[in-house]
């Protein structure tokens, strides 16, 4: 049963991810991305990481993508027809970068040890994630919040030229 669910949602996520790239209309790409994020969060649930799954939907599908869709609708972008021409040189960077990313993913997966699955119930709980965020990963956590603050200030400066 769990395997069927896994294959269904994994296929859905992969299909939606491809659809993001293939679609000509920006809005359809954004909607496919939302579908992809939701399907991925189901995969998190299947792995026992309920908290991560829910946070993924709240933050990405529920907040960030709403802003994306909002902006796309506000600008009412036309269907991208000559986009391929404009972005031709990107191919030369995109292919090596994609290969490099593929290499990274394969190298990481190669080194993963198969777990016994005994602890997985508690690893994904809010308490466990909070614990590790405020002990082992305190510095990255705080630095990330600083980064977000900088981005916020930058956005305000851009939006208001005459402060």
């Amino acid at each position: 049963m769990i395997q069927i669910l896994f294959f269904f949602f994994a296929a859905l996520a992969a299909g939606a991810a491809i659809n993001v790239l293939v679609q000509k209309h920006v809005l359809y790409s954004a909607l496919s991305l939302i579908l992809m994020l939701t399907a991925t969060s189901v995969l998190f649930i299947l792995l026992g990481a309920d908290f991560l799954a829910v946070i993924q939907i709240i933050v990405y599908a529920g907040a960030i993508m709403v802003l994306f869709v909002f902006v796309i609708m506000l600008l009412n972008l036309p269907v991208d027809e000559d986009g391929a021409d404009r972005l031709r040189w990107l191919k030369f960077i995109g292919i090596p970068l994609g290969l490099f990313f593929l290499f990274l993913v394969t190298a990481t997966l190669w080194n993963v040890q198969a777990g016994t699955g005994t602890q997985s119930r508690f690893v994904g709980s809010p308490q466990a994630i909070g614990q590790s965020l405020f002990t082992d990963y305190l510095l990255p956590f705080e630095v990330t919040s600083l980064l977000i603050l900088i981005a916020l200030v930058g956005a305000v400066v851009f939006a208001k030229k005459d402060l």
Partner: peptide
């Protein structure tokens, strides 16, 4: 659910798409 409250917030935050898509 152990994260029931967050689940409701997550699910209801998707409801906005109905309104946005309907309007657009």
């Amino acid at each position: 659910l152990s994260v029931g409250l967050l689940f409701i917030f997550a699910i209801t935050s998707l409801g906005v798409y109905g309104i946005v898509l309907g309007g657009w």
